[in-house]
């Protein structure tokens, strides 16, 4: 388990974003590890993406209900 996992509440069929994280010139996007969802097995996807304020992990919730997502912040 990572030491500083990110927990996000994602509204139904909506996006949520984690805090900006630092990247350097050599950084490249990689897969995001979803550690858990509540409810378990919820259909969510995540990827790192630049938004206002820097690079952030973005989560999209495909479910018709809210989902709590815990992510590994290291990309």
């Amino acid at each position: 388990m990572p030491t500083n996992p990110i927990a996000l509440k994602v509204l139904p069929r909506n996006f949520a974003s984690g805090p900006p994280f630092p990247v350097d010139n050599q950084w490249r996007p990689g897969p995001v590890t979803i550690l858990s969802t509540t409810p378990e097995g919820a259909d969510v996807i995540a990827a790192p993406m630049p938004t206002r304020g820097g690079m952030r992990i973005i989560v999209y919730n495909r479910e018709p209900f809210s989902v709590e997502v815990v992510l590994d912040p290291v990309v």
Binding site: R13, I45, A47, M49, P50, T51, I58
Partner: peptide, 21 residues
């Protein structure tokens, strides 16, 4: 619009994110 995607609808943005991911 959301980050580096600029489309016409929310559904377009979701599709862009899914395609990227």
């Amino acid at each position: 619009s959301y980050g580096p995607f600029v489309m016409n609808t929310h559904a377009d943005i979701v599709q862009a994110f899914e395609d990227y991911q």
